[in-house]
Design a protein around this nucleic acid. Structure first.
Lengths: 201, 201
DNA sequence: CGCGACGTTGATTTGCCTCAACGATTGTGG
DNA sequence: CCACAATCGTTGAGGCAAATCAACGTCGCG
């Protein structure tokens, strides 16, 4: 498949890699032959609990969430992925064992997906993909560690303030109950926090 | 520096890499010329808040902790690193900006450290180091995500049980107050949990 | 239209924290 | 080697942050 200006999804991915170590022409071609475009509608799943996570996904537009469901049926949001984010269940993807989580579109979304074997092919044949994905995962690691720090040290209100800083636009895009689930609090309590924040910002 | 059987610290590191993509002779030599051995005594620091984190460290023996200190002076443990673990403040290490955390030895420890520029040299010249560090960071990512899930979905008692499963030997090696700090609860409350667990296991 | 998701409010309960006190242990300097 | 301080683990009383449960109005959607 030739690269051309009409292939807008792929150009978003190529531009994304410019933030790391930019790709050569050949590497770009490999992207186009190993990543597959997919449109996901609202409430569509790209991974369900019990299935093996077969793809590493790049979000071109829209928004997805990854979450676990506990014994009582409650959902716990682990990650939101918007434009230019990556999302996958790393544990299931590399081990090829059944996943414990769901990945679901919150908005109609366009994504680019690569399969496990194809990504290994890119890793094996191109140093740069190993490097760029190392960096991508490192950044996710930093985010996760910050989130752990918040969780073990900060109150619900502080965590919400931090969330607003980190994702200023998200409260406009998704229901507050989703944010509450991400923060590890109830929707009722988040409602109270937001009321308090209005009075004393 | 020649490789020989007396170089026990380095052989631990080489053996560690056998879990990933094992190193060639040349790559092993690069390890020996870019990693530096260091003994850290109990309560010794390899990183203090405000300093730039200059090293990526591999723990050969002993145990270290990484923690943040909040406005009230309380410590919050982000990571324990024991034999064959890696520890660094990724955010500071790659950005070369001042760190927000401390890394301190809990036990007398032997570690191997590589500096930022030297690690970049290995990344640039050896595909395999980019790959192996990608995998190391991915595994840390999986751990961190599991911990976030625990934090947003489980009670203090459940988190402690999970901790015991994950690190069965740690409670013998370090004070419970350190574990409480890791779990995000007070030492007093952990004491109560442990009392309850004796009665109903 | 009517149903189901959402946001809010209030009353009540509970998980966990704070503070204070106490032995037991560790370790450290004289 | 001892004495004394510091750290640790535990217990209990009281308080607060956040959950639970129930109710209600709103809105978007089939």
């Amino acid at each position: 498949m030739a690269l051309n200006s009409e292939n807008t999804l792929l150009t978003a991915l190529i531009n994304h890699f410019k933030n790391y170590f930019p790709l050569t022409g050949k590497e770009k071609e490999e992207l186009s032959s190993h990543f597959r475009e997919r449109k996901i509608k609202r409430r569509g799943f790209i991974l369900q609990q019990g299935d093996v996570c077969k793809h590493f996904s790049f979000v071109v537009s829209g928004c997805l969430k990854m979450y676990a469901v506990d014994q009582t049926g409650k959902e716990h949001n682990l990650q939101f992925a918007m434009e230019n984010d990556w999302i996958t269940d790393l544990a299931s993807f590399y081990s090829e064992k059944p996943s414990m989580v769901y990945i679901e579109a919150i908005e109609p979304s366009s994504i680019l997906q690569i399969e496990h074997a194809d990504l290994l092919y890119l890793y094996t044949n191109y140093h740069k993909f190993d490097r760029n994905f190392r960096i991508i995962v490192e950044q996710r690691c930093i985010e996760l560690q910050n989130r752990v720090l918040q969780n073990i040290s900060a109150s619900a209100e502080e965590r919400y303030r931090y969330f607003l800083q980190q994702y200023p636009t998200l409260p406009n895009r998704l229901p507050h109950t989703q944010i509450a689930s991400y923060l590890g609090i109830t929707p009722e309590f988040l409602s109270k926090i937001r009321k308090d924040l209005i009075n004393k910002p």
